[in-house]
Amino acid sequence: MAYLELKNIYKTYGEDENVTEVLSDINLSIEEGEFVAIVGFTGSGKTTLVNLINGLLKPTSGEVLFKGEPVVDTSHERGVIFQNYSLLPWLTVGQNIYMAVKEAFPKESKSVLHERVKDYVSMVSLTPAINKRPKELSGGMRQRVAVARALAMNPEMIIMDEPLGALDALTRGNLQDEILNIWSQDKRTALLITNDVDEGIYMADRIIPLKPGPNATLGPEFKIEIERPRDKTALNDNLNYKKTRNAIIEYLMDIGEERKSVSHTKYVLPEISPKSFVA
């Protein structure tokens, strides 16, 4: 039995005539310890998919099974790293993480929790900034706090919704390594949603493209057969990498073209010409 399983998921927004089907017929299964990336265009329903898995949304039909149990609500077993960090701006870095660990381990004493906060802050190397507010941090630092917050709750699975989307290329590379590092330590199951094919190939075991919405559905999966730990600089010369990359991009370009050609509605413009005020 798969660790996380999505069965015939449909998700619609709106009612009656205004209804739009965002996701249709999504089937996915992830094994324990696996790192899966879902790649898709912006607006293809990636965030909706993530929210279905972490329990913030409920599917219109179909079911999400986590360890065989249907997902009905959010759970501490599934840690979430949001696209826009979602740190509480009135709390410091330490307080943001403390709030999470306090919820995750309600029985632990204060000092144990404080230690835990410190450990995770130092894990993302933010110890000097522990008493700073999110506003005083750079985008990359904020995302590291979000990573630390999600991991400090010791989730069995990490769900990442375009976690590095808003960062510059250099910071992005560093954080990818950091996340991979943490992941490889205790091999938690991970699901990464991204719009960057290279990021997916570098980090994941499997890449599944999401066909753009409305009616978004998952495409055929691409297995990444590159040995870990992967070397970013050597990756460019890896034949396997080139092949997989080209295959995925080709696939995405094709569905992109398809999407364009589908919408060829012609708009009829009314026949109007400027009125002449000269008598």
């Binding site: 959010t74 501490h76 949001f82 979602s86 509480l88 919820e103 995750a104």
Partner: peptide, 19 residues
Amino acid sequence: DYINVAKVLKLGTFQKVFK
């Protein structure tokens, strides 16, 4: 976003309102 954070952290109603 903050409401989502509260949900993901599974804060109780009281905590959600005050924190």
